[in-house]
């Protein structure tokens, strides 16, 4: 594994991924409408992807192993490096999972407040600013979409308990 570079590993993952899709292409229903069958185009795309990935794999193998990183890889280091994007993903996932419960307005406010607080500073003044920003920005957007554009955004079921 040590002699493989990052591109080689990506190429292998891609090959596996295309294989899953190729396998799934056999589940495509064939209809006799006298037109090009529904599995022809996706399989054509997959064949091209296989060929390109094979070239990518050969290129990566020729390139040899990656240069030694300045710092050895550790999970803690990786988490530290990608802290901000990871927080965004986690909080956004939480926002989507709780959308039915909190609704777009309160869920959105919570999302913005929490994002601001984990990405920015945590002094009491900052936290107050974050809360005000979340209420004003999401409240404003929610009002524009609800009253200006007549979009019915997901309501909250949370307040139904009270």
């Amino acid at each position: 594994m040590g002699s493989l570079n990052r591109d080689t590993i990506i190429a292998i993952f891609m090959m596996i991924f295309w294989s899953i899709f190729l396998w799934a292409s056999f589940d495509i229903r064939i209809v006799e409408y006298g037109t090009m069958e529904a599995d022809v185009w996706p399989r054509g795309v997959l064949i091209i992807l296989y060929i390109l990935t094979a070239i990518y794999l050969v290129q990566s193998l020729r390139a040899g192993p990656d240069a030694e990183p300045e710092e050895p890889f550790t999970v803690a280091g990786w988490l530290r490096k990608y802290r901000n994007p990871l927080w965004c993903f986690v909080l956004y996932l939480g926002f989507l999972l709780t959308l039915d419960f909190f609704g777009m307005l309160f869920g959105g406010m919570l999302l913005v407040f929490m994002l601001l607080t984990v990405l920015g500073n945590n002094t009491p003044k900052d936290i107050a600013t974050h809360a005000a920003t979340a209420v004003i920005s999401i409240g404003g957007m929610w009002s524009i979409f609800t009253f200006g554009l007549n979009v019915i955004l997901p309501p909250s079921s949370f307040f139904e308990y009270f």
């Binding site: 926002f95 989507l96 999302l111 913005v112 920003t133 920005s137």
Partner: peptide
């Protein structure tokens, strides 16, 4: 970034 991320969803 935080505000725009939420706005993207809405």
């Amino acid at each position: 970034a935080s505000i725009i991320l939420a706005y993207c969803g809405i």
